[in-house]
Computed example of a mutant assay.
Amino acid sequence: MMIHPEGWKPAKGYANGVLAEGRILHVGGQIGWTAEQVFEAQDFIGQMVQALRNIVAVVEAAGGRAEHVTRLTWFVTSKAEYLAHQAEVGAAYREVMGYHFPAMTMVVVAALVEDDAKVEIEATAVLPSDS
């Protein structure tokens, strides 16, 4: 259940809080490389899509679906690049995650461990007890 305090302006593209009950899955930071650890995309959007697909793959391997993701923490190497592509970010996000917007945080970092990575996203998912 999405939590939104009374009187607050609407959250756009994220939730302020998510209340969930079930089995908790912590997904380590996923970057924009494939299962073979190859970067097929060098651009921010391509890497973002792949990182989200990687998250969904881990969630599905545990028996869940994208809508079970309750939190995403994004680490990006360029705030300017992220902001310059807002429309594409939204469309690409919805392509992978649908219209499911969990609690989210974005942190701008100087670099990521993999030199070619532009984004790393970690997730928490709460899967139903019967999944």
Rank of each mutant, 00 (worst) to 15 (best):
Y82S: 08
M106L: 15
T73V: 14
V76Y: 11
A62F: 04
G22H: 01
A84H: 13
L112H: 13
R94Q: 14
V89L: 10
L112Y: 13
A110Q: 15
T73R: 14
I3R: 00
A84V: 09
V76R: 09
F44S: 04
L25I: 01
F39M: 04
E122G: 02
T124M: 05
S129V: 11
E21I: 09
A35D: 13
W33F: 14
W74Q: 08
L72M: 15
P5W: 02
L112Q: 12
D130F: 06
A11M: 01
A66I: 01
D116A: 15
A11V: 00
L127T: 03
I3E: 02
A35K: 10
A84C: 09
E95R: 11
A62H: 12
W33K: 08
A62E: 15
G13C: 10
I24R: 11
G90R: 04
G32C: 01
A15R: 03
W8Y: 10
G17R: 06
H68N: 15
W74E: 02
G32F: 00
I24K: 12
H26R: 11
E114W: 10
V119M: 08
V126G: 02
E67F: 09
M106T: 15
G90L: 05
M97L: 08
F101A: 05
V27H: 02
I121L: 03
L19C: 08
A125D: 08
H100Q: 06
A92M: 01
I31C: 06
M2A: 08
A11L: 04
M48Q: 11
D116L: 13
E21P: 01
A61K: 11
Q50S: 06
R65T: 14
F75L: 11
V89F: 15
E114F: 12
A11P: 00
L127E: 03
Q50T: 13
A87W: 03
A111L: 10
W8C: 10
G17K: 03
N16L: 14
T70I: 14
V108Q: 15
R71N: 09
E6C: 04
L25D: 02
T34A: 06
L72R: 06
N16Y: 14
I45G: 06
L25H: 03
V119E: 04
A125K: 03
G7F: 02
D115Q: 14
A66E: 05
G90Y: 01
G22S: 00
E95T: 14
R71Y: 15
R94D: 07
G13Q: 09
V108P: 10
A103G: 07
I24W: 10
Q37M: 12
H85T: 13
G63H: 07
L52A: 00
V69A: 05
F39A: 04
S129F: 11
